[in-house]
C-alpha cells in the first residue's frame, strides 16, 4: 500500500493524570511532505510528537506510523521504528560531553557497524549539508544557538530517516539563522525523500516552507489547510494566532481554579 500516508493519528486523546492534553486529534502526514503543527505554548504539540515517537501512549485512539500501530509495538519493534525517525529537540539536545563530530557520529556508531573511515565520510557529508563541515571539532558549548540547531539537524538525519520531527526549530534564533534553518528543513526533506513534521509557533517562517498546517488549541485541531488557506482564514482563532492579536478566542487571563480552592489545596508535590 504505497499510497498509505506515512503517519495517521485517528481520534487520539492523551492526558497527564486527570488533565486532558489532547482530545480527539485526527491528523495525516503524507509521504514526502512537510507538515506544520502550530499552536500556543502548552497546547500539546510536543506531546503529539512524543506520541508519534512512541515515548508516550495515547489514552485513546490510534497512532500509525509506516504501517505500524505505535502503541502496540514492543521495545525492539519500537527501537527498530525509531531508527528510521530523526528528531530535533527544542534546544538541540546535543550531547554536551561530545564534540560536534561525535554527536553526528553517535547514531552511526550505535546502530551501524561501520568502519571509522566510513563514519568520517558520512559525518562530513551530513555536516556539509548543514554548512558546518568546518565546525566538526567544536564542543556544543562553543556553538551559537543556530549552529547547535544545525548540528542537531545533521545528527537527526545521520541515518537517512524516513521521518524527521522538529520541535520548535525556530525558537530563540535570530532572523538570519531562522531563515537558514527553515530553508534547510525544506531542502533536506526533499533531498532525503523524507517526510517532516515541524512543531512551531513561528507562523510566518513556517508558512513559507510547509505544505500543510494543523493548528492545535486546547487539545483539539481548530484549523487545517495549506499555507494559503491558513493565511486567508477568517476563523477567529486562526486570525488571532496568525496575526498575533492580544484579544480573541484565546483569553489574556490564564484559566484559574477558584481562589478559595487554590488557597486551601495542599502543597503539590513531585511524583
Amino acid at each position: 500500500m504505497p499510497s498509505e500516508p506515512l503517519i495517521q493519528l485517528k481520534d487520539v486523546s492523551f492526558s497527564y493524570g486527570p488533565r486532558p492534553i489532547l482530545q480527539g486529534i485526527n491528523m495525516t502526514i503524507p509521504r514526502g511532505k512537510v507538515v506544520a503543527i502550530m499552536g500556543i505554548s502548552g497546547g500539546g504539540k510536543t506531546t503529539t510528537l512524543r506520541l508519534i515517537g512512541g515515548q508516550l501512549r495515547p489514552t485513546r485512539g490510534e497512532v500509525r506510523v509506516a504501517g505500524h500501530s505505535v502503541p502496540d509495538l514492543d521495545a525492539p519493534g519500537l527501537y527498530a521504528l525509531r531508527r528510521r525517525m530523526g528528531m530535533l529537540f527544542q534546544f538541540g539536545a546535543l550531547f554536551t560531553d561530545m564534540s560536534v563530530f561525535d554527536n553526528v557520529a553517535f547514531p552511526l556508531r550505535e546502530h551501524a557497524d561501520l568502519s571509522e573511515t566510513l563514519v568520517r565520510d558520512l559525518v562530513t557529508m551530513k555536516l556539509n549539508a548543514v554548512g558546518l563541515r568546518g565546525a566538526h571539532a567544536m564542543m556544543p558549548s562553543e556553538l551559537s544557538g543556530g549552529m547547535a540547531r544545525r548540528v542537531a539537524l545533521a545528527r537527526a538525519i545521520a541515518l537517512d530517516p524516513m521521518l524527521v520531527m522538529y520541535d520548535e526549530p525556530f525558537a530563540g534564533l535570530d532572523p538570519i539563522a531562522l531563515s537558514v534553518v527553515g530553508r534547510l528543513i525544506r531542502t533536506l526533506n526533499d533531498a532525503l525523500g523524507a517526510s517532516s513534521i515541524i512543531v512551531t509557533h513561528d507562523v510566518h517562517e513556517s508558512l513559507k516552507i510547509v505544505d500543510y498546517v494543523y493548528i492545535v488549541a486546547e487539545g483539539r485541531i481548530v484549523a487545517e489547510g495549506t499555507a494559503e488557506d491558513i493565511r486567508g482564514s477568517a476563523a477567529p482563532y486562526v486570525h488571532q494566532f496568525v496575526w498575533g492579536e492580544r484579544d480573541g478566542p484565546v483569553p489574556f487571563q490564564y484559566p484559574s481554579a477558584p481562589y478559595r480552592e487554590q488557597i486551601l489545596r495542599e502543597p503539590s508535590r513531585a511524583h
Binding site: 519500537l78 527544542q90 534546544f91 550531547f95 553517535f106 546502530h111
Partner: peptide
Amino acid sequence: GLMKATEQLSAMEMMAVNPIAR
C-alpha cells in the same frame, strides 16, 4: 540530571539507544 533536563536522554531514546544501557 543535566542530561535529562536538556533532553539529551530523550534524544537518545529517540535515536533508539537505551539511556539506561548507554
